[in-house]
Write a protein that binds this DNA or RNA. Structure first.
Lengths: 192, 192, 192, 192
DNA sequence: GATGAATGAGCTTTCATTCAT
DNA sequence: AATGAATGAAAGCTCATTCAT
C-alpha cells in the first residue's frame, strides 16, 4: 500500500523528536506511541524500554559526530592537530544541532545517577579511558603538559560543553570563528 | 517537651539530604516526609511544593557559596584577581561539596526546561547579566580580550564545571593545587 | 486603632463572596481565610465549619427574601394574592440577585444529599410543611384545585426556578413584566 | 476462561451505580475501581478521567430518554401534541428512574460551573437552541404564545423538573395521572 | 510482526479540622 | 479573641511495562 514503513526507524525518529522537544525524563512512552503511530506492543517489540530507545539514539548521535571528526581519531596525528580537530568538531556539531547536543547532555546526567543507564555509563567511561590513553602518549612525547586526564579533559572540552549549554544559535560564519577560538584555547591550555 | 524543633529547618534539611542522595527528580515527597518526620500537611504548610523546596535550598547554597568567594564580588578588584578568586572559589567549593554541586547542576538542568522553575531560571539569568556587565568593564580597561560574554564565561568556568561533573573526591592538598591550576588557566584564556 | 472590626461579619462577607464566585464546593477554607484576612483559628472560633458558614448565610438570605415578600406571608390573604405575590417576589429577587439565587440552589442540592446539611434540610422541609398547610386551607375554601402539595408547589414555583437557572440578566422593566407573567401563570395553573 | 468480560461496560456500569448511590461529587475513582473490579489503569485506559465517565453515561441516558419520547421529536407534529408528549415523556422517565434523573440534575449543575464539563455544557446548549427553533415555528403558525424561549421553556418544563427534585416514588397509576396533569398544564401555559 | 487491554504502585497535592499557645 | 503550625486521610491521575491474542 504505502512505501514499506520501517517501524523501527519510525519509532526511533518519533522518540528523538519527543526527547528533543520535552526532554528524556518528561517524555512518556505514550508520547512516543502517539507520535510514531506504532502500538505499545510494537515499541516494546523493537526496544527493551524507554532507556533502550535513548541508548539507540545515543549510539546514532555518537556515530554521526564521530564520523564528522574522523581526522581527530587518527592515533598517529600530532597532539595539536588531534586536539584542535576534536574541539572544533564538537563545537561545530553542537552549534549545528543544539537540540541534539542538549539531549546528549541530559542523557549523560541521567547516566551518572540512574542504574538503568549502566550501558550508557560504561560507554562513556570507555571513551574516557581511550582519551586518557592517548593523552598519556602525548605526554610521553612531550607535546602536552603532564596533567591528570580528568583535568586535561576539563581544560580542553569544558569550555565547549559550557558554551553549548548556554549559547544561542549563531550565524554559520560566527560558528566557524568560535569553534576556532575554542580549539585554539584548548590547545594553549594543555600544550607543554 | 522536646528541644524546640524548627519544623521548617527540619524539613529543609531532610529535603536536602534526599536530593543529594537520589537527585531531585527521583526524590518523592514521601521520601522527604519519611526523612523529616513531618506530616505531608506540614511540608505543604511551609513550602508550596517540591520545586519550592528546591528553590529554597538553591538560595541557601548560592548564599553560602557567594559568601565564600566574597572577594571576587568586589567591583573594583582587578580582573586577574577577581577571575582567579571566582574560579578558585567555585572549584574549592565544588570539591568540598560534591553532592551539593551535583544538585545545583541538576537543578540548572531542570530549570532550563521545566516551567515550574521559572523563578530559578530568572535568578540564573540575572547572574549571567551581572557577569556580562563586569566583563564589559574589564574589556574597556583593556584587561581582558574582547569576547562575547557567553564565550568568555565558557572559557573561564567551563573547565571547572566539567571537572566537577567528572572528577572524584581528592585529598585537600590536591584540591588546592587543582583549583590554582584552573584559576591560572582561566586567566590565561581571557587575558589580553 | 481602626474602626472596630466585627470579625464575624468580615468572615461572613468573605465567605459569601467566595461562595458566589466559585461555588460552595469549590471554595476552600483557605480561600475564605485569604479573602477575610482572618486566621484559621478565628474562623473556627466563630463558625463550627464550612457548612456552618453556609448555613448562616442561608439564614440571612432567607430572611432578606422573606422580608421582601412580606405580604405573601399574611395567613388571611386570599389565595390569588398570596400566590402571585410569592411568585413575583421569588422571581424579582432571583433576577436582582442571580448569584445569590444560584448559591441557594447549590446549597439546596448539597442539602438533599450531604449529611452535614441536615439542619438546612430540615429548615427547607419545615417550609414545605408550612406551604402544604396553607394550600390545604385554600383547597377547603374552594379557591384552588385539589392537588397534592408537591404537585401544586411544582406548578407554581417550578417555572421560576427553572427560569432563574437558565436565564440571563434582564433590564429592570422586563424583569417586572416577566415576574408578572410567571405570577399570572402560577395562579392559572392552580386556581379552581 | 470467564464469560467475555467487556471491561468498558463493566466500568461504566459500576460508575453509574456509584454515581446514583452517592452522587457524582462524592464518588471517588477508588469507589469505581472497587465496584468494577477493574484496575486504576484499566479505568484510565478507557476513560480520560472521572468527568469522561460521567459524560459517557450522560450520552447513554440522553439516548435512552430521547428514544423513549421519539414522537415528540417529529418536526411536523402539532405543537399541542409535541409539547404534551415531551412533558409526559420527561415526567414518566423521571418517575421511573428517579436516581438517574437526580444524576442528570447533578451533572447539569456541575456543567454550568466546572470547566471540565465544557463538553456537557455545549451539548445542553445545543438542545436549547433546537428547542428555541422549534418553538419559533409554532409561534409563526399561531399555535403558541409569543414568548422568549427561556420563558416558554420554564413554563413548560419547570414544573416537572421541580417535581422530580422534590417528589417521592409513586405508584404507576398515579405516575400516569401526574404526567398527564403536567402535560396539560404545560400546554395551557403556552398555548395562544 | 503487531496489537492494545490490563496492571497497580506510585506520584503530587488538597483540605477541613484540631489544638497548644 | 486570636493565631497559625500541625495533621493525615484521601483525592485524581501517570506511567513503564507485561502478555494474551
Amino acid at each position: 500500500m504505502t512505501i514499506k514503513a520501517d517501524r523501527r526507524r519510525t519509532i526511533l525518529d518519533a522518540a528523538l523528536r519527543c526527547f528533543l522537544d520535552k526532554g528524556y525524563a518528561a517524555t512518556s512512552m505514550a508520547d512516543i506511541r502517539a507520535r510514531s503511530g506504532a502500538s505499545t506492543g510494537s515499541i516494546y517489540h523493537f526496544f527493551a524500554g524507554k532507556s533502550a530507545l535513548a541508548e539507540a539514539l545515543l549510539d546514532e548521535a555518537v556515530a554521526g559526530w564521530g564520523a564528522a571528526s574522523a581526522t581527530a581519531q587518527d592515533p598517529d596525528a600530532p597532539a595539536e592537530h588531534a586536539i584542535k580537530a576534536s574541539v572544533r568538531g564538537l563545537c561545530l556539531w553542537g552549534l549545528a544541532h543544539p537540540e541534539r547536543s542538549r539531549f546528549l547532555e541530559e542523557l549523560r546526567n541521567h547516566a551518572s545517577s540512574s542504574p538503568e543507564f549502566a550501558a550508557v555509563r560504561s560507554k562513556l567511561e570507555n571513551g574516557q579511558e581511550a582519551g586518557a590513553a592517548r593523552y598519556a602518549l602525548w605526554v610521553e612525547k612531550g607535546e602536552v603538559r603532564e596533567l591528570p586526564w580528568p583535568v586535561a579533559y576539563a581544560l580542553m572540552l569544558g569550555p565547549v560543553y559550557t558554551f553549548l549549554r548556554v549559547g544561542r544559535p549563531l550565524p554559520q560564519a560566527d560558528a566557524d570563528d568560535i569553534a576556532g577560538l575554542f580549539a585554539e584555547a584548548a590547545w594553549h591550555a594543555v600544550r607543554s
